[in-house]
Design a protein around this nucleic acid. Structure first.
Length: 684
RNA sequence: GCUCUCGUAGCUCAGUUGGAUAGAGCGUUUGGCUACGAACCAAAAGGUCGCAGGUUCGAAUCCUGCCGGGGGCACCA
C-alpha cells in the first residue's frame, strides 16, 4: 500500500519536473528516502539536487536546489494519503502522511507481502548441493540457509518457486569414500550396509583418512582413478557401493536440513544427467548457435571452448556493470572428448529453463514429516517412475554456490543466455557467498593440530579432506542443549512436559542459528566462533522470536482478562491519537507513529532484499522492528509504564494500542517466518 | 603477473541506485524486575570510515594510485 503511494508521489514529481523544468526523468531516477527523524516527515525526495545537476549540465548555470524544491512543491496537487509537503535542509522535499488514513488501511489490509512486479513464471532456486560423501558442515549450512531464505522471500513476494538440490553422485568426492571402504577398510557392500553408527560422521572420518592415504603416497591416487572409472561405467560392486554411499549420505543431509526447516522439491543427480545424454543435446545446440569453438591451435588445441570475449560482449549488452573478470576461455570439451563440469552444468541449466527438449524420470526419495515428498531423478526403468511432475521449465534460476565458483558459473549463464529466447532469464543469478572459516583458536578448540603455515594465518579454511570443520548437526545439537539447559533451570517451566521443552528449545536454537548465518552480507567471510554462533542476547534470532512471543503473551493476557480486542476507530480518531502529546501521562503520538511506520516498511525491505538478493537487509530490519517494539513495551514516565495496554482506561487509546501491537506482531511474525522458518513458541 | 572482493568503534558486523548529525550487537561503566515476560530496558564512554589524491552542492559509498587480508585466473568439481 505504501509502495503504491510512493509511486503516486513519484509520478506527480515526474510530471511537475517536466512542466517546470522541461526535463524528462524516469521513475527509476527519482529516489525516495526515509528521513532520519519523523519530525522531518515520512518520505523524502532529494530530487531537487538531481534537477540542479541536470540544469547545470544543459544550461551551464548553477541553481539553488532549495529554490528548485520550493518551485516543485508549489506545483504538486493534493495526494490522497499525504497530509502536507515541506521543503527542508538544502533542498529535500518531504512528505507527511495522513496517519489516520494510512494506518486504518494498513491495519485492515490483508496479511500479505505480495509485490506487483513479479516474474510471472516459475523461478528455480538451487541450493545446498553438497557432495554426498560425508556429514554437512557449517559452510554447507550457510548455503542452505541462504538458499532457503531466498526461497521464502520470493514466495512471500508472490513468486512461484521450485527448489533443487543437485547431487553430484559420480564425482571424485564420493569415489574417495568408496576408495576408503574398499581399499582401507576392505569392507563389502553388505558390511557397509551393516554399519550402525551415524553414517555421515563415519564417512567424515573415513574421508579424512583417504586424504592422508593419498598424501602419504601420491601413487595411491590410482585407486581413485580406478574407482571413478568403475562408477562411471556402472561396474560391479564398486558402483553399488557408490550408490549406497551417496543415497545414504543424502538422506542424512536431508534430515540435517529439515531440522532447520529446509526442504527441497527435487534432487537432480549428476549420474542421470550423464545417463540421459543431456550434454550431447546441449552440445549440438551450442554448436548450431555458434556459441562454442573448436580450437585447432594454441594451448587449448583440440578442445571445444567458450570465448571470454563473447562473455565480455554479452555482459556489456546486458548492462551488467561487473566487467569481465576472467581472461581465459572456458573449456567445455577436453581434447580427449570428455565434457567438463561447466559443460554438464550448462546442459542441466538448459533443462532447468525448459530449453533442452529432454526430461528426467522421477521416483520418491523420501517423505518429510509434514507429508511433503521429495523426488529424485532416476535412470532405472520402471513403470512406477513419474514423468508428469513438471519439474524444470523455469523462467529464471538462482544458484546458491560459494564465490569460488564464480568463473564457471559466469559461463553457465552465458551458455544458457545464448540459447534462450525468453529474456526473463536475465534475472538469473549466481548467488555467490563467502566461506565460513575457522579462526586458528577455534580450530584448536575443536582439537585440531594446525600446521605451522596455518597457525600463522588469520583464518583457516574448513577442509573435508583434512577432516577439519564444525559438523552442522553438532552445532545444532550444541545450540539446542544450551537452550534446554536454560529452560530446565527456569522454575517457570516446571509444569512443561519434556517433549514440549524439546520442541521449544529446538525452535529457539533454529531461530538463533539461522539468524546468525543471515546477519552477514553474502560477501563477508564468516570467521566462525562458537560463542557468537550460540549467543542468545542482542542482535540474534532469539531476540526476534522473543519479541513475537512476548506480544503474543500480551494478547493472551488481554483475552484471559476478558478485555475486548475489537478496534473500531475512525480515521480522524486515529489521526488525533497519532498527533496527541499528553504531558500528564507521557503519551506521544509521534513516537507511536514512528513504530507503525517502521512496521509498515516490511514489504519495502523485502523488495530491497530480493532485488539485491541479500537476506541480511531483511534480517537487520526485523531486528530493528523487534527492538523498537521492545522499547515501546517498556517506556516509562516517573516509574509508570506509559503504554501498558492492559491498564489503559481510555477506550480510544486502548484500541489504538491494541491495533498497533497487533499490526507490529503481524509484521514481525511474517519476517520471522521468512528468515527462520520458525512459528513462534507459546512461551520461552 | 592479471583479476575480483574485503578493510567502518576494543571485538564482530550493517550502512539501499552518492544524501540530512556514520549505526547495531558484544565487551566496558552505571541504573532498572512484589513482572501486560529481565532471553528485556535505559544511560555513558568509544570513529582520521586502511592511506593519499580526484569528481560533486554533497563521498564510508564513485574514479585513480598505494598498503594490508581472502578468493579466482585447471583439459578439478
Amino acid at each position: 500500500m505504501l509502495l503504491t503511494l510512493q509511486r503516486t508521489i513519484k509520478t506527480q514529481l515526474q510530471v511537475a519536473v517536466k512542466k517546470i523544468f522541461e526535463l524528462e526523468l524516469e521513475l527509476a531516477d527519482i529516489t525516495a528516502e526515509y528521513p532520519p527523524k519523523t519530525e522531518l516527515g515520512d518520505l523524502a525526495f532529494p530530487i531537487a539536487f538531481e534537477i540542479a545537476k541536470r540544469l547545470k549540465a544543459s544550461t551551464g548555470t548553477k541553481q539553488n536546489p532549495r529554490q528548485l524544491a520550493d518551485k516543485l512543491r508549489n506545483e504538486l496537487s493534493t495526494i490522497n494519503g499525504v497530509s502536507r509537503v515541506e521543503t527542508a535542509g538544502a533542498g529535500y522535499i518531504n512528505f507527511f502522511l495522513e496517519r489516520g488514513k494510512v494506518f486504518d488501511r494498513l491495519f485492515k489490509s490483508e496479511k500479505s507481502l505480495k509485490l506487483d512486479d513479479i516474474s510471472g513464471g516459475k523461478l528455480i532456486v538451487e541450493h545446498t548441493s553438497i557432495n554426498p560423501n560425508k556429514a554437512a558442515h557449517i559452510g554447507h549450512l550457510r548455503n542452505a540457509v541462504l538458499g532457503d531464505t531466498i526461497v521464502r522471500m520470493l514466495q512471500a513476494s508472490g513468486e512461484t518457486v521450485e527448489i533443487h538440490n543437485y547431487i553430484d553422485n559420480t564425482g571424485v568426492q564420493v569415489a574417495d569414500v568408496v576408495v576408503g571402504f574398499k581399499y582401507l577398510e576392505k569392507k563389502s557392500l553388505a558390511e557397509i550396509e551393516a554399519i550402525k553408527e551415524r553414517f555421515d560422521y563415519y564417512c567424515w572420518d573415513l574421508y579424512a583418512q583417504v586424504g592422508k592415504f593419498y598424501e602419504e603416497n601420491p601413487e595411491n591416487k590410482k585407486f581413485r582413478a580406478q574407482t571413478l572409472h568403475e562408477i562411471e561405467h556402472n561396474e560391479g560392486e564398486t558402483a553399488l557401493v557408490a550408490e549406497h554411499v551417496s543415497n545414504r549420505i543424502l538422506k542424512t543431509h536431508l534430515d540435517t536440513m529439515w531440522r532447520l526447516g529446509i526442504a527441497y522439491d527435487v534432487l537432480p543427480r549428476e549420474s542421470d544427467v550423464l545417463h540421459l545424454n543431456f550434454w550431447q543435446t546441449a552440445f549440438e545446440k551450442l554448436k548450431e548457435k555458434g556459441a562454442i569453438y573448436f580450437e585447432t591451435e594454441g594451448k587449448n588445441k583440440g578442445c571445444w571452448v567458450m570465448r571470454a570475449e563473447d562473455r565480455a560482449e554479452n555482459e556489456n549488452t546486458a548492462q551488467d556493470e561487473t566487467e569481465s573478470q576472467y581472461e581465459a576461455d572456458k573449456i567445455l570439451v577436453r581434447s580427449n572428448g570428455t565434457v567438463t563440469y561447466t559443460g554438464k552444468d550448462i546442459a542441466y541449466h538448459l533443462w532447468k529453463l525448459g530449453q533442452l527438449g529432454l526430461d528426467f524420470e522421477y521416483r520418491p526419495f523420501s517423505t518429510y514429516p509434514n507429508g511433503k515428498i521429495v523426488w529424485i531423478t532416476t535412470a532405472k526403468e520402471s513403470a512406477e517412475n513419474r514423468k508428469d511432475l513438471g519439474f524444470g521449465n523455469g523462467v529464471a534460476y538462482f544458484n546458491v554456490i560459494d564465490v569460488g565458483q564464480s568463473y564457471p558459473q559466469a559461463y553457465v549463464k552465458l551458455g544458457v543466455k545464448l540459447l534462450s529466447t525468453d529474456n526473463r532469464i536475465d534475472r538469473s543469478a549466481h548467488l555467490a557467498y563467502e566461506k565460513v572459516v575457522l579462526t586458528p583458536s577455534s580450530a584448536k578448540e575443536l582439537g585440531y593440530e594446525l600446521s605451522e603455515e596455518d597457525s600463522k594465518r588469520t583464518q583457516v579454511s574448513m577442509s573435508g579432506r583434512k577432516g577439519l570443520g564444525v559438523k552442522a548437526d553438532d552445532l545444532i545439537d550444541k545450540s539446542k542443549e544450551k537452550v534446554l539447559a536454560k529452560i530446565n533451570s527456569n522454575p517457570d517451566y516446571s509444569d512443561v512436559s519434556l517433549e514440549e521443552r524439546e520442541d521449544i528449545s529446538q525452535r529457539i536454537a533454529v531461530s538463533g542459528l539461522r539468524y546468525f548465518l543471515l546477519k552477514y552480507t553474502r560477501s563477508s567471510v564468516i570467521a566462525f566462533d562458537f560463542e557468537e554462533a550460540l549467543a542468545f542476547q542482542g542482535e540474534t534470532g532469539v531476540y526476534l522470536l522473543y519479541a513475537v512471543v512476548r506480544v503474543n503473551s500480551m494478547f493472551r493476557n488481554l483475552t484471559e482478562k476478558g478485555k475486548s480486542l475489537k478496534v473500531n476507530l475512525t480515521e480522524s480518531q486515529i489521526n488525533d491519537l497519532f498527533s496527541l502529546k499528553d504531558e500528564l501521562t507521557g503519551w506521544d503520538g509521534n513516537y507511536l507513529w514512528a513504530i507503525v511506520y517502521l512496521a509498515s516498511r516490511l514489504q519495502d525491505t523485502l523488495r530491497l532484499s530480493i532485488n539485491s538478493l541479500e537476506p541480511t537487509h531483511l534480517a537487520k530490519y526485523a531486528y530493528d522492528l523487534a527492538r523498537s517494539f521492545s522499547h515501546f513495551y517498556a517506556v516509562k514516565k516517573e516509574g509508570k509504564y506509559i503504554y501498558k495496554v492492559i491498564d489503559e482506561t481510555d477506550s480510544l487509546r486502548y484500541q489504538l494500542l491494541v491495533a498497533l501491537s497487533d499490526y507490529v506482531r503481524r509484521q514481525l511474525e511474517q519476517a520471522l517466518w521468512i528468515l527462520t522458518g520458525v512459528e513462534p513458541v507459546e512461551k520461552m
